[in-house]
């Protein structure tokens, strides 16, 4: 999956428009980065990447780029 496709998945998850996110986007500066979107991220990782994301790992994510790296 290309970085563009991964970003599109995250934009869809956050209900943002195309191009709203980049690897440099700081998660804590996003209004949408709340407990429900963190839960959504766990589901997305499981559905799309077969990865079991935990709350502890989420706490290490600072930017969208960190999530993209985790997606692999």
């Amino acid at each position: 999956m290309s970085e563009k496709e991964k970003l599109a998945l995250l934009e869809d998850m956050f209900e943002l428009d195309e191009g709203d996110l980049s690897a440099d986007t700081v998660l804590d500066e996003l209004d949408e980065w709340d407990s429900m979107s963190k839960l959504s991220l766990i589901v997305l990782m499981s559905d799309e990447f077969e990865k079991k994301l935990t709350g502890d790992t989420i706490m290490t994510f600072k930017t969208v780029g960190d999530i993209l790296n985790y997606m692999g």
Binding site: S35, T54, G55, D56, M59
Partner: peptide
């Protein structure tokens, strides 16, 4: 539940 949710929840 503990793994999935943040401290607030």
């Amino acid at each position: 539940f503990l793994n999935r949710y943040d401290e607030n929840s």
